[in-house]
């Protein structure tokens, strides 16, 4: 079973040289720590920046330089700043190659719910609806089951949707799965020490298991 860093590490293997990538808050942010050697990616922050650098050294924080999670960050050589409308313009026009975000639920049709729980204070969708509606390639980083032990990979989402038919891949503490239209969740890889049966038991939506399922290679 993977921890949060393990999930981030596995997702980092999906990065390709030259990609523009938008990382959501939470586990997706950790992906930046595991970018493979020889791979150069440009991180997009939807509040208006391409080429996001690491956190600043103590004392170097700049209140005019934050990421979409409102954290202080730094620029790198080649950074570009822009406004919110242009930022979502590049997202909407499909210029961002990969979006990685968290989810509360994903359906076997690729629907995603990650912004609202009925009868709880709603904080808002932020940029999530724009990102999932536009991205060509969306990977969801999340736990396979919720705190109550219920599967988050469902036939249909029970929570209000963020987007319809948009998730392409899911990486959880148990597995890597691809969402294939008309089929369901196709099991691609198992986490180290996890059996196919464990993935089947933790998946409420339609799970496709074809042939031998390899274990993830993490190093």
């Amino acid at each position: 079973m993977l921890d949060k860093n393990g999930i981030a590490k596995r997702i980092a293997q999906e990065l390709r040289d030259g990609y523009y990538v938008n990382l959501g808050i939470g586990i997706p942010t950790l992906v930046a720590n595991y970018i493979p050697a020889g791979i150069n990616v440009m991180l997009q922050s939807e509040n208006g920046m391409l080429g996001m650098g690491p956190f600043p050294f103590e004392g170097d924080e700049d209140p005019d330089l934050i990421n979409a999670g409102k954290q202080t960050i730094t620029e790198i050589p080649g950074t570009a700043y822009f406004d919110s409308a242009l930022s979502f313009g590049m997202i909407r026009a499909g210029k961002v190659d990969l979006t990685i975000l968290g989810a509360m639920e994903v359906s076997e049709d690729g629907d995603i719910a990650n912004w609202k729980i009925p009868n709880k204070m709603v904080k808002g969708m932020g940029g999530a609806m724009d990102l999932v509606a536009a991205a060509k390639n969306i990977i969801v980083a999340m736990q396979h089951v919720n705190k109550a032990g219920e599967s988050k990979l469902l036939p249909k989402c029970s929570l209000p949707l963020t987007g319809v038919g948009c998730v392409k891949k899911i990486v959880t503490e148990l597995a890597v799965l691809e969402v294939v239209k008309g089929k369901g969740f196709v099991l691609l890889e198992r986490a180290p020490g996890i059996s196919v049966e464990q993935v089947i038991n933790a998946t409420a939506g339609k799970l496709i298991v074809e042939g031998d399922i390899p274990e993830m290679q993490l190093n």
């Binding site: 690491p54 956190f55 600043p56 050294f57 103590e58 004392g59 170097d60 924080e61 209140p63 005019d64 934050i66 999670g69 409102k70 954290q71 202080t72 960050i73």
Partner: peptide, 12 residues
């Protein structure tokens, strides 16, 4: 004042 909401830093 330019208040910072989430002060995140790394050690030198």
């Amino acid at each position: 004042e330019k208040r910072i909401e989430q002060r995140t830093v790394r050690k030198r």
